[in-house]
């Protein structure tokens, strides 16, 4: 029987991430889908630590650690070198956090995608700068506490929509994925691997430490983010063809928020407002996918 997610491991046990780290789960599944002919470019992020200190390595593929803001550019250089050496087989992957993607690395990412560099850019999103101790990023959602948005200064700005920013580049393939939906994730990674040019995967990766929640909730929270439409699963081909991969069952965002310490200060009115925002975003996505609200469309059910 062929397994939908292969049993071979490219990530060793004993990595130094926190218990329940979504970023570690994400890497494990992505490498299972990509296999050994892969090179990982890792700008500064929690994965700079998870990957292990000299002389150890958590991964069974080459890892090039690089400066925080350089994910798109370093991968372009690695790809160019492999091309000139005649290696068309190896997949070059940038593996960056949300800070390295949405913020400081956005210029290099945008440049690489505009040049349609042949690589996969993975952003594992834990919605803050976790490596430096939970500071806000432009991926931190509305309502969240972080160490730089404490007390009454909780973040009152929307999360940047990174996939739409990449879609505006007419990127050949962009998709969201979640650690709670490994088969969908693995399918998307394999699909991305087969596409030529720039590919972007936005992976929801829960962070028990930064989100102030028990580690055993990591996968459950990730599943709820999808079920509540907070993090819809969808893919966009060539910047125009949208496919929504999961249709929600009508869960309310409140359920998701109340399990996480980072949202505990929110009032009922705040939660009501956030529900409105999530509904708006979802309807916008449905329109882009050509699905009328409530109707069936190009939907792949996956649970």
């Amino acid at each position: 029987m062929e397994l939908s997610v292969q049993d071979r491991e490219y990530m060793c046990s004993g990595h130094v991430g926190c218990p329940g780290c979504g970023a570690a789960i994400a890497m494990r599944f992505v490498l299972k889908a990509l296999g050994e002919k892969t090179m990982m470019i890792v700008p500064a992020c929690c994965w700079s630590i998870i990957a292990g200190p000299y002389p150890q390595s958590t991964l069974k593929v080459p890892v090039l650690h690089t400066a925080f803001e350089t994910g798109g550019a370093v991968a372009s250089g690695v790809r160019a070198a492999l091309d000139i050496k005649g290696d068309r087989e190896t997949t070059v992957v940038t593996w960056a956090g949300d800070g390295g993607t949405f913020d400081i690395g956005f210029q290099a990412l945008s440049g690489a995608v505009e040049r349609n560099e042949d690589f996969i850019y993975v952003c594992y999103d834990n919605e803050a700068y976790m490596n430096t101790g939970v500071q806000r990023s432009s991926s931190t959602p509305y309502g969240a506490w972080t160490t730089t948005t404490p007390g009454q200064e909780w973040k009152k700005l929307r999360k940047k929509n990174i996939v739409e920013a990449l879609v505006a580049h007419r990127i050949p393939y962009a998709a969201t994925a979640s650690i709670a939906f490994p088969e969908d994730l693995v399918r998307k990674v394999k699909k991305a691997k087969a596409v030529k040019g720039s590919r972007f995967l936005h992976i929801y990766a829960s962070c028990p430490t930064g989100w102030r929640m028990p580690s055993e909730l990591a996968v459950k929270i990730a599943r709820m983010a999808v079920q509540t439409n907070i993090f819809p699963l969808y893919e966009v081909e060539n910047g125009v063809r949208y496919t929504i991969n999961y249709m929600p069952k009508g869960y309310l965002v409140r359920e998701y928020f109340k399990l996480q310490g980072r949202f505990k200060h929110l009032s009922e009115a705040d939660l009501e407002q956030i529900q409105q925002m999530v509904n708006e975003d979802w309807e916008l996505l449905l329109r882009k996918a050509g699905v009328s609200p409530g109707a069936a469309g190009p939907v792949t059910k996956i649970d």
Binding site: G72, A73, V74, G77, V78, R79, A80, A81, Q107, A108
Partner: peptide, 14 residues
């Protein structure tokens, strides 16, 4: 910045 970053990638690939 990206010019140097890209060369760091390329030179690391030999």
């Amino acid at each position: 910045h990206s010019a140097m970053a890209a060369l760091i990638g390329a030179a690391s690939a030999g």
